[in-house]
Design a protein around this nucleic acid. Structure first.
Length: 469
RNA sequence: GGCGACAUAGCCAAGUGGUAAGGCAGAGGUCUGCAAAAUCUCCAUCCCCGGUUCAAAUCCGGGUGUCGCCUCCA
């Protein structure tokens, strides 16, 4: 298993801390608004990381924080003219709803910053005691010059930061790169007690505390979007290194950004899409396919034409399932000739190889297409076709596809409805036998209007429910 | 100013030394009452210029172009 480690900027062989176990932490949302489609990419990707390790037999512990203390939440509360807590609760709930709608399995632990404030203040106290942090003007800052290794994750040296000069002047900071651990409160802001007076913790400390609480001093993978490398992850690492002298995570993984029509997504350009909005137009698996069809570290351009393409491509998988009557045969054990069994084994190996090469999901999807092709090919034995379809579903599930075959393939439809459809099809067959094409086409068109698509095959007429969206 | 990424067919996208996966779109054939589906066939020499090598999309150097981070941000 090769992973690209952002810290070393190389692909490295993955060696778990405990054999057969994966401890994974990925940064979750700050709940000040509905999360956008770019966030969705990160959440989806780490969902796939988790799924793949599980498929490979790992016992995975996946922790994702919910940041519910933050300046942006305070600002949003003022804008909506409601309480701070109302905003945090509202968007935390929306986050859970929308990730579930995207087919993302909930992490094993989803701690909230507000639940761990005492632990955070204790952590900051230790940093102060050991000389890595100092109080100034009611705030507490981390002294970046106290840690020689500061900058090792992002490759930034503290001296160079002075040149950039984009950091706002703060008279209390000893060094421009020092970052806030604790902020004193202004009137009307939510507060928690601390040795430095009432205030609230900074973002960087929340994450390091929550990750170590549930995963230990050092865990396997820490992930998030590439913009988090600096300063967020750099600062988490600095705090952890200061206190433990050990790495926070052995591997740092960061997904690439998403552009909208070739431009950076931003509210001012009005090209800002929430996942919630996109889910109104596209189903979750189409969005998932769209993201996974490109490597996770590459930037990706989001536009409707490309997602329409993804939808069509994904439809091929379902077409293959329809061809082999998958629902009726999903549990059947195909009786494969040795040669055919070997073909399927080789394809599964290809899939694993692709995924073990730093999560090459694009190549993994190509394997699914090969399986789909095998399932559809008339000249293949019915046993091979079924076996290919079953493998396609099994491997596709690792990527998060095929989550609701019953719904998608229509077997949840009440038997009465099914019987009615079959009845209409039998009338149409009668009309066709009498070469009454007008009647035949009317039956087909009327059913099509209801979203039921008929296909005449050599074995008779089959029907599928067309995707609604 | 510092750091980094990317450049493959009309579009999307794999591919880090041995002569270009896959998807979408397109063209033609088969099948079909028609449609759809299915199936068969076709469709690139990898931004430019040098270099290394028996051999490079793949390594090195130099260009050009696009993008990101350095400030809250997935």
């Amino acid at each position: 298993m090769l992973l690209y480690n952002s810290q070393t900027r190389k692909k490295e062989e993955f060696i778990p801390i405990s054999p057969g176990k994966l401890k994974l932490y990925a940064c979750g949302p700050t709940v000040y608004n509905y999360f956008h489609i770019g966030n969705a990419r990160a959440f989806l990707f780490f969902d796939v990381v988790r799924r793949f390790f599980q498929y490979r037999g790992y016992e995975v512990t996946y922790v994702q924080n919910i940041t519910d203390i933050d300046d942006k939440i305070i600002a949003q509360a003022q804008e909506e003219e409601v309480s701070y807590k109302t905003v945090a609760d509202k968007y935390a709930r929306a986050f859970l709803e929308d990730t579930a709608a995207l087919g993302i399995t909930a992490p094993d632990v989803q701690p909230r910053a507000t639940d761990v404030v005492p632990e955070i203040t204790a952590y900051i106290e230790k940093l102060v005691q050991h000389g890595y942090a100092y109080e100034a003007g009611g705030d507490v800052y981390f002294d970046t010059t106290s840690l020689p290794s500061y900058g090792s994750l992002s490759g930034k040296k503290t001296e160079e930061q002075l040149v950039g000069a984009r950091v706002a002047e703060n008279p209390y900071k000893r060094n421009p790169t020092d970052f806030t651990l604790w902020k004193h409160s202004k009137p009307g802001e939510p507060v928690w007690p601390s040795p430095w007076g009432e205030g609230r913790p900074g973002w960087h400390t929340e994450c390091v505390v929550m990750s170590q609480m549930y995963l230990g001093e050092t865990f396997d993978i820490h992930g998030g979007g590439s913009d988090l490398i600096f300063p967020h992850h750099e600062n988490e690492l600095a705090q952890a290194t200061a206190l433990s002298g050990k790495p926070l995570a052995n591997y740092w993984m960061h997904n690439g950004f998403l552009n909208i029509e070739g431009e950076k997504m931003s509210k001012s350009l009005k090209n800002f899409f929430t996942a919630r909005d996109i889910l109104k137009d596209y189903d979750a698996e189409t969005i998932r396919f769209f993201f996974l069809s490109k490597h996770y570290r590459s930037p990706i351009d989001f536009n409707r034409e490309l997602i329409d393409e993804s939808r069509k491509a994904l439809g091929n998988f379902y077409a293959a399932l329809g061809v082999v009557d998958f629902l009726e045969n999903r549990d059947a054990k195909p009786d494969l000739e040795p040669g055919n069994a070997e073909i399927l084994r080789a394809l599964e190996a290809d899939f694993i190889t692709a995924m073990e090469d730093d999560f090459n999901t694009a190549r993994a999807i190509a394997v699914l297409f090969e399986l789909s092709h095998k399932a559809k090919l008339d000249s293949n034995s019915s046993q091979l076709r079924l076996g290919a379809a079953q493998l396609m579903v099994r491997l596709g599930s690792v990527l998060g596809f095929f989550s609701d075959l019953d719904e998608r393939l229509g077997s949840r439809m009440p038997d009465l409805s099914k019987s009615l459809i079959e009845l209409i099809i039998s009338y149409r067959a009668e009309a066709r036998a009498n070469k009454d094409w007008a009647a035949s086409d009317k039956f087909r068109n009327d059913l099509a209007r209801l979203g039921i698509e008929l296909k005449d095959t050599p074995e008779g007429c089959s029907w599928t429910i067309k995707e609604q969206k």
